[in-house]
Amino acid sequence: MASPGSGPTADVLSGTSTVVLTAAEGKAGSNFPPFDASTFAPQLVWLAITFGLLYLVMSRVALPRVASVLAERRERIQRDLAEAERLKAETDAALAAYEKALSDARGKAQGLAKGMRDKVASETDRERRRVDEANAVRLAETEARIADTKSKALANVDQLATDTASAIVERLIGHQVSSDDVRHAVSGPRPLTPA
């Protein structure tokens, strides 16, 4: 197994390297270093030392440290997610409470407004009725006063007409006529009597 390893390489390389190779072959037990049994013992000893040390460092120190960091991070993420979930539920509850309060307030406001509207309407009605009644009374009073004044005025008109007529007649015929005659003549049509 050693000869095919060195054979082709010797062919492809220049003469100097072949010389080096053969010199190395002469010195060592085998001409192919990986199969040189004299190097086995120190390699195995140092492999045991170094690999054993690596295993100790990894299993005792390095890997538990990584594991704890990873576990801590996983735990933290879990905790944060749970916290976020809780906060979201809280927000939802608050939102629902707000919505409910809002709709309650709206209903209450509507009720209040309706009550107020009804109250105002009834008060207005009452006021209107009162004013109407008062107006009706005053109207009746006024009407009565007008009727009274009218009849008074009409009576005055009769007197005025009688006075005026007697004055006119006196001027026309030159002497006085009895006021009774004049009154009769003014106040109503009657058959003419010869004067």
Partner: peptide, 19 residues
């Protein structure tokens, strides 16, 4: 024979680097 060789040196280096 536990001689410190170039192979040993690189084993030590590998372990030191990994650790």
């Amino acid at each position: 024979d536990a001689s410190f060789t170039n192979a040993s040196a690189f084993m030590v280096a590998a372990v030191a680097l990994a650790s």
